[in-house]
C-alpha cells in the first residue's frame, strides 16, 4: 500500500510528539519507537477511516490503546510496570547531571500513578491536547478528564511532598 502524500504531510510532523508520549508511557526508547512504528502502520492502513479535522487525537488514541495493550502484556509476562531500573540514557538525553536527576524524579513519580492519571497529565500538560481531544483519546467524557486531571495533580503533589519534592519546588513564574 502506498502512503498517501496528504498523510505524510499531516502525520510526519507529529512523529516526535508521538515518540515523546510513547516514551513517557513505556519508559524505554526502543519499545516506544517500536510502538510508534505500529501506530504508523495502522494509521497508513486506516487513513481513509479517520474522523475529525485533525489527525492528532486520532493518532494519539491509536498510540494510547496500543501502549495499554503492551503494558498489560508486560504485566502478564512478569515485567514490572514501573521500570525504575531503566538506564537514564534510554529515557532521554539528559541535559546535565543536575537536570537529569530532577527529570528522573518526576518520571519516577508519575510512573507510580495509576495509568489513567498518568495519561491525562501527559496528554494535557505535555502534549497540550485540548480537554475535548484528551476525552476523545481516552474514550471518556470531558467531565471525567477534568476530575482525573484534578485528582492526578493533587496526588502527584502529595507524592512529591512525601519524597522531599526537590524537583517540584515552586518557582517564581512571572509569565504563566
Amino acid at each position: 500500500m502506498r502512503t498517501p502524500t496528504d498523510m505524510i504531510e499531516l502525520v510526519q510532523p507529529l512523529v516526535p510528539a508521538l515518540r515523546r508520549y510513547a516514551r513517557a508511557l513505556l519508559r524505554d526508547r526502543d519499545d516506544a519507537d517500536d510502538l510508534v512504528q505500529d501506530v504508523l502502520e495502522r494509521a497508513v492502513a486506516r487513513w481513509h477511516l479517520r474522523q475529525g479535522a485533525s489527525p492528532r487525537p486520532w493518532l494519539f488514541a491509536i498510540l494510547h490503546n496500543l501502549a495499554i495493550d503492551r503494558l498489560r502484556q508486560r504485566g502478564r509476562r512478569g515485567v514490572p510496570l514501573q521500570l525504575d531500573a531503566v538506564p537514564e540514557e534510554r529515557l532521554a538525553a539528559p541535559a546535565s547531571q543536575e537536570a537529569s536527576v530532577e527529570q528522573a524524579d518526576i518520571l519516577t513519580l508519575i510512573s507510580r500513578l495509576p495509568e489513567e492519571h498518568r495519561s491525562v497529565l501527559l496528554l494535557i500538560g505535555v502534549e497540550e491536547l485540548s480537554y475535548a481531544e484528551a476525552a476523545t483519546v481516552l474514550g471518556v467524557a470531558q467531565g471525567t478528564i477534568m476530575s482525573r486531571l484534578s485528582r492526578a495533580r493533587e496526588r502527584l503533589r502529595r507524592m512529591a511532598e512525601e519524597t522531599g519534592g526537590a524537583s517540584l519546588r515552586p518557582s517564581l513564574r512571572i509569565v504563566s
Binding site: 512523529v15 515518540r19 497508513v44 538525553a93 512529591a160
Partner: peptide, 29 residues
C-alpha cells in the same frame, strides 16, 4: 503553583525526545 511546577518538570524531562533524530523506521517520507 505546585501544579504548574509539576507540568514544567514533566516537559523538561520529556522535551529532549523532540530533538532526537527520527529513526528511519518512523520516517514516512
Amino acid at each position: 503553583s505546585s501544579y504548574r511546577s509539576q507540568r514544567d518538570a514533566l516537559r523538561a524531562a520529556l522535551d529532549p525526545v523532540l530533538d532526537e533524530p527520527v529513526p528511519l523506521a518512523l520516517d514516512l517520507r
